[in-house]
Simulated assay, not measured.
Amino acid sequence: MTDIPMGETAGAVTEARSASRLLFIDNIRWSMIILVLSMHASDTYSPFGYWYYVDRQQTGLGTALFFGVYQSFLQAFFMAALFFIAGYFSAAAYDRKGFSRFLRDRFVRLGLPTLLYMLVIGPLTEYFLSRTWGSGFFGHQWLLHLKDGEWLSETGPMWFCAALLVFAIIYGLIRLTGWKESRIEPAGDRRDGAAVAIFIAIMAASTFLVRVGMSEGASVLNVHPGDFPQYILMFAAGALGYRGHWITELPERFCIQWASLALTLAIPLFAALILFGGGLQGERAQYAGGFNPVSAGKCLWEALVCVGMGLLMLAVYRRHFDRQGPVARWLSDNAFGVYLIHPPILIGSAILLHAVALNAIAKALLLTAVAAVGSFAASAFVLRKSPLRAIV
């Protein structure tokens, strides 16, 4: 994946690989997809998060704390990393294709899979597996789904592609005016360090301000608006970094130093949030937003983890994982197919595992493994051998 982190056709991926050989980016992508599976497996059994199907049991403080830390940590960085990569290669794609072809390509690669999920995969999953879609005949419920406009809010995990399509349209319109990113060379000096600190502060402040005015239940494209500042800023940073080749040329030492600083600061801040934010007493309202120090601290913590983990992954994957054998290549080729098809497979696997006598953490790990095997197999042996292979 060296153009858009999700929604590439197999041919486009091959073409991009041969052009730039950024195999560590492909490896980041499939790694993040597996983390998506683990997040949804955690949603199934933990007391936190939202998912189509949950199988929650009474959990103790230790289990709840584990899930709270793990899910919060993932949420803080894994999708933002993909938005950064998307922004970076959007600039390259626009340069090659121009406005019309760039947008047409994005509609095919992002819009069509999203519509497939909203109109087919999602409804089938909700009706037959999670049973959250009414009790009438499927065809009747499906027509009601279309008539009342509910399908427009049913992006499921494809919210990422829907949001990325919107970002791509806006980016294309900006480029159409004649604007072009300046070449910002990474030097890895104090000025770059100050820019990282300012970027973290802007991300934290903008996220906090949006969450002040938005209720916990608000949703746009199946995402809370309070998450969008992070995604928008990471996409924009990726686009601005393209001409300076940040992904390949940002000094490794700089990445490690600033990642270490950001993540080190995040640890005591997170501990303080747990101790003094009400989490140990089961009070979670202040974490969700509002004008309070707990929400402000959480927004700062998320920004530190987002930027810190982004820099750390860049350094580690670029140094140690810039190659692919047959297995990694296969995982990369099927990553988007897994992202598209994993909800029904994960939910079906969770239903089959319902009677397994394990604690919630062990069941989440088992479900992640089972769903990963099933989803990659479904992508490789079903989706990519069907007419849908053109969009997965």
Rank of each mutant, 00 (worst) to 15 (best):
P5L: 13
T9Y: 14
G11D: 13
V13G: 07
V13P: 03
E15Q: 06
R17D: 14
L23S: 09
D26S: 03
I28C: 08
R29L: 13
W30L: 01
I33K: 01
I34D: 07
M39E: 07
M39H: 09
A41K: 02
S42R: 13
S42P: 09
S46R: 13
W51A: 13
Y52P: 06
V54C: 10
R56I: 15
T63A: 04
A64R: 01
G68A: 03
V69K: 10
Y70F: 11
S72H: 13
S72L: 05
F73Y: 13
L74T: 06
L74W: 01
F89G: 02
A92N: 09
R96Y: 07
F99T: 03
L112Y: 03
P113C: 12
P113D: 10
L115M: 03
Y117R: 00
Y117P: 03
P123I: 10
T125F: 09
W133A: 15
W133C: 11
F138M: 01
Q141E: 14
W142K: 02
L144G: 13
H145L: 00
G149C: 07
E154I: 00
P157W: 06
F160W: 08
C161N: 08
C161S: 08
A162L: 11
A168T: 01
G172I: 01
R190C: 04
R191C: 01
R191M: 00
V196G: 11
A201K: 00
A201W: 08
I202P: 00
I202W: 10
M203I: 05
T207L: 08
F208K: 00
V210I: 15
R211N: 15
E216G: 12
G217N: 10
N222C: 04
V223C: 12
H224C: 04
P225S: 11
G226P: 00
D227Q: 10
F228Y: 07
F228T: 09
P229F: 06
Q230I: 09
L240W: 12
R243M: 03
G244P: 01
H245R: 04
R253K: 15
F254L: 10
I256T: 13
Q257G: 00
S260L: 11
L261Y: 14
T264S: 15
A272G: 15
L273N: 09
L275M: 12
G278E: 04
G279M: 08
L280M: 05
E283S: 01
Y287L: 07
F291I: 14
N292H: 11
V294G: 00
S295T: 00
A296F: 05
G297S: 05
K298S: 13
K298G: 09
W301K: 04
L304N: 04
L304M: 06
V307W: 04
L311V: 08
L311S: 13
A315Y: 04
A315H: 05
A315K: 03
R319Y: 05
Q324R: 13
V327F: 15
L331Y: 11
S332V: 11
H342T: 06
I347R: 05
I347F: 15
G348P: 00
G348T: 06
S349I: 12
L353C: 08
V356Y: 08
A357D: 15
L358Q: 09
N359Y: 06
N359R: 02
A362N: 10
A362Q: 10
L366V: 15
L367H: 14
T368P: 03
T368S: 13
A372M: 11
G374Y: 13
S375F: 12
F376W: 14
F376Y: 14
A380Q: 15
V382W: 03
A390N: 04
V392R: 05
